[in-house]
Design a protein around this nucleic acid. Sequence first.
RNA 1: GGGCCCGUAGCUCAGUGGUUAGAGCUGGCCGCUCAUAACGGCUAGGUCGCGGGUUCAAAUCCUGCCGGGCCUACCA
Length: 521
Amino acid sequence: MAETFYITTAISYPNGKPHIGHAYEAIAADAIARFQRAQGRDVRLVTGTDEHGLKMAQTARNAGRDTLDFATEMSNHFREMCARLNISIDAFRRTTEEAHKDTARAVWTAMRESGDLYLDRYEGWYSIRDEAFYDESELIEGEGGVKLSPQGTAVEWQVEESWFFRLSKYRDFLIELNETPGFLEPESRRNEVLGFLKGNELRDLSVSRTSFDWGVDVPDSPGHVMYVWVDALCTYLTGIGFSEDRAHFDRYWPADLHLIGKDIVRFHAVYWPAFLQSAGLPLPKKIFGHGFLLHRGEKMSKSLGNVIDPLELADQFGVDALRYFLLREVSFGNDGSYSSEAIVTRCNAELANSFGNLAQRSLSMIFKNMGGVIRADLPVAEADAALAKAVADGIADLREGFARYDFSGGLDGWMRAVFACNQYVDEQAPWTLRKTDPARMEAVLMTLLRVVRDLAIALRPVVPSSIDRLLDQMGVAADARDYAALDDAGWLAALADSGFTLSQPVGVFPRLEMPATAEGE
RNA sequence: GGGCCCGUAGCUCAGUGGUUAGAGCUGGCCGCUCAUAACGGCUAGGUCGCGGGUUCAAAUCCUGCCGGGCCUACCA
C-alpha cells in the first residue's frame, strides 16, 4: 500500500468572503497535495470552516438570520472558492457538523481523563469582537479614557466560570518539540515560538465559555461551550474520520503537514500539540507558517479599499495563471506582493512565451512536417542527449524544491530546463533541417516531444487543468501523468505503436492582456 | 522594554568569510522566422540600507543607527 500523506489548510473563520490569503493557502496546499500524489503517495487534503463563537452568532442575529443558515451561507463561499480554484480536497468539514462535535467532545473527555482540565473562575477584560480576554496591562486608552483592547476594540469586565487546560505542565515538552528540526518551519517562526516558550511561564489556558451557547457543548458541564481553538483544531481529526471511520483515521493520522498562516503559528505549535499529547494522540509531523500576501507591498485592509476578491483575479487571468503566479513569485514562508501587472508579466514571460510557445512550436512542426506521426526509432545525437540531461536536471530541481516547500526555487529550476529547450530549438533549427536533412529534423522534433511531455508532467501539480489539455493533445494517457511516468523510457514507442497522431495544436497558455488601468490602486 | 525576520541591479529574488556580487523580468543592440509579435545571442544596470569594528580578506561575522514586518512583556 502506498505511503500516506495527510495535509490540512487552516480551518477558516467565515465572517466574510474568502480573500486572496485564503486562496493562496488553498493553492499552496493543493499544489503540495497534487505533488505528493504525483510522487505516488496516498494523499488526503482537508480544509473547512470554523463556524462557532459569539461573533458568528451576533453577526447572524444582526442580519436577522438563523445562525446555522447564516454560517452555511458563509461556509459555502469557501467551498465554492475551493471548487473554482481547482483545489483537490478530499473533505471540506464544518465545525457545526455533528460528527465534528463528537470529535471535539471525545478529545475533551480524553484531556479531562488525563487530569489536564479543571474548573475555575475567569475574571478579566473581555473583548467580544476579539473573543479574547486581556490583561489590564495590555489595554490601551481610547478617546475619553475608554479602555480598549490592543486591537482597539471595546472591552468589558467579565467574571465567568471556566474550564482551564494545564498548559503550564507541557512547557518542557513543547520546548523540546519545537526544537526538533523540521517540526516548525520556517526558521523565523520557530525562533518566535521558542522565544515565547522559554521566555515565559506558561499560563493555563481558559478553554470554555459560559457567556454564549453557539459552540460545542462541554461534556457533563451544562452551560459551557468549548473555547474556539479546542473546537477548531479538532477539525483536523474530523477531516479523516476520527468519529466516523476509525480505520481510515488511523491510516492517515498523524498529519504530515498543517499548512497555516504565520498569524496562527502559536495555536498550532503550542496549544495543539499540548492538547493532542494530553488526549493521547500522536502529534503532527510538521507545521508550516506561510507569509502574507501584500497588494503592491501594502497590507490589505478594508479601510484601504485594496481587498481583492481572488475569484475576480481567477476570472480575469485564469485559475492556472493565478496558481502559477502565486507559487512562482512568492518565496514560500516569506511575505509576498502581488498586482495585476506582476501576474501578467510573470505568466506571459514564463507560461506563455517560454513554455507555452515551446510546446506550441514543437507540436506544430510535428503536425506540419511529419503529418503528426510519432516516431520512437530515430537515432539520438549528442545534442539530444545533452538536452534530455538538462531537462532531467531541471525536473529534479523542481521535485527537490517542492519536497522542501520551496516552490519558487523549484520552479526556477524548471524554467532553466525550459530555456535549454528553446536554445536547443534555435541551435538545431529544424526549419532548416527540413530542407537539408529531413531525417535529422524528425529526430529533433521527437526529442522536443519527449522533453515537452516531461516538463508538462513535472509542472502538472501547479497548473493541472492547462497541463491536462496539453497532454490530451499529445496523446499522453490520463493515467500516465504522475512522476513514475517520467521513468518510463518506453512511452514514446508505445504511443507510436498505438497509431496516435498529433492534430493541429491549440495553445494552452495564452498571453494575458495587461489591464488598461491598474487594478485596485 | 525584550526578541525574531527583512532591507542586494528599475522589478522579483539568489548568494551567509575568499577570484572582477549572480539569475529572471524590464531597457538597448544583433540574429532567426518553426512558433502564442513568440525564440536565441550580446549588452546596459548595483556606495550589497547607513556608520563604525574584527579579519590577510565581509553583502556574508560583531556593534550602533535608519526603514519595514512580526512575536512578546505586571513600561509609565
